[in-house]
Nucleic acid binder design. Sequence first.
DNA 1: GGCTTTCTGTCGCCCGGACGACAGTTCGCG
DNA 2: CGCGAACTGTCGTCCGGGCGACAGAAAGCC
Lengths: 239, 239
Amino acid sequence: MSVTAKAVLRQNLLLRGLAETSLDRIAGLAVRRSFVSGATIFRQGDPGDALFAVIAGQVRVSCQDETGREVFLNILESGDVFGEIAVIDGAPRTATAVATQETAVFLIPRSGLLVQLQRDPTLSLHMLQVLCQRLRWVSDLVEEGAFLDVSARLASRLLKLGRSHGKVEPQGMTLRISQGDLANFLSASRQVVNEHLQAWRDKGWVSLARGTVVIRDAEALAAVARRNGSDTNAARKQH
Amino acid sequence: MSVTAKAVLRQNLLLRGLAETSLDRIAGLAVRRSFVSGATIFRQGDPGDALFAVIAGQVRVSCQDETGREVFLNILESGDVFGEIAVIDGAPRTATAVATQETAVFLIPRSGLLVQLQRDPTLSLHMLQVLCQRLRWVSDLVEEGAFLDVSARLASRLLKLGRSHGKVEPQGMTLRISQGDLANFLSASRQVVNEHLQAWRDKGWVSLARGTVVIRDAEALAAVARRNGSDTNAARKQH
DNA sequence: GGCTTTCTGTCGCCCGGACGACAGTTCGCG
DNA sequence: CGCGAACTGTCGTCCGGGCGACAGAAAGCC
């Protein structure tokens, strides 16, 4: 295993701060895999026999229904771990993971991982942290879905995506995502997303280009994210 | 600690199958608490300094926004564990827990629990299972919220509640919940829930009474739960 | 350099479902 | 036993936002 790959593993929440021997043992289990852009890493319903960690590239996790509608749950990049749920309880995968760029990952087989979890309490504790983090993320999705209208959800999600995947540039936080994908993230329609985005562009809060959104006024977006459906009416009345 | 209390603890997913010594050590940490019907056990934002296990009674877990709107996330009864997220990562509670009956719980303080998790790998592994179970439950909420319309969500949730909290009776599976609470569970309005419930009553799929729903044809409900928004139209066209 | 694909920007229509308002019931409680 | 609170059953109104339909623009791809 290359030195840089080990460095990537070391920086994530799961493995950060683990004893060197423990890290080596996990590294010994891991297999490197590459995926071309668009390749499916696993799909909903597959047996969950491995844990993954992204070395380089990007992976999107989503759910689909039979009709092909899709909801994105998360975007993962270098250092992120995914596929933990199924690996721990051994049940089928709850979501589908697709590489959206040329992507390299580590694959850690379930059997070896379970043994290691049993042996290394620190690893278990880290894994618990990872699951908690996921749980908070998903609970947040539920809460926002229940309480916020599309504009608030959009603002909130833009800020979160910006924080985790944005590139800081002089004009602001740059996000590489199409409006259609953004809509899938919110379970909203592309059209409505576009409408809000444009309103915000006119106010100077964001700038838009094909496949990118640049956040120029995070404060303003945060205010929209905080305001729920009822306040939206108030805003319209005022205008 | 009473024998019956220990029996309750032993049957849940977290502690089931643990070594006797390990179980005793946790029992040594635990404190028994009682709550009257309507009492708040903890609320969203509180520091998460304990794990809870229900001995008897019922606890409802929900999120609230500032305007008082509420979404139920779960209903817990004897043997269920709750409050795990905040206890593990030490961050504020993500939801509010309220006793809906006279309720007794065990409270296990964070500090002691963490030590025990570090010492007993089997306990950690069990805790991982518990978190996975929660994660699947919450992911399911997201997926259903995104893909299913109110009738399908209602059918799906009724079946799930029936499975976990229903009483089997000659007429069918009896569920003790008001239509308003059911609506909060789906993030839907009480009125629409009532409308669907009544349509189903007329078809003989459920029977209704003040504060209770009896599932008489689980198959029929399952079919509704499977059918998403688009098929609803098809059904209407046919009629 | 053309051709296809994939985005963005816009309309208009229409429907699911939220919300307010009441009337009638049934509990629980003083 | 009587009163108030909580629940169910129904209407009508109104609107957020889904969906189909295009047109133009930018980006791969042969």
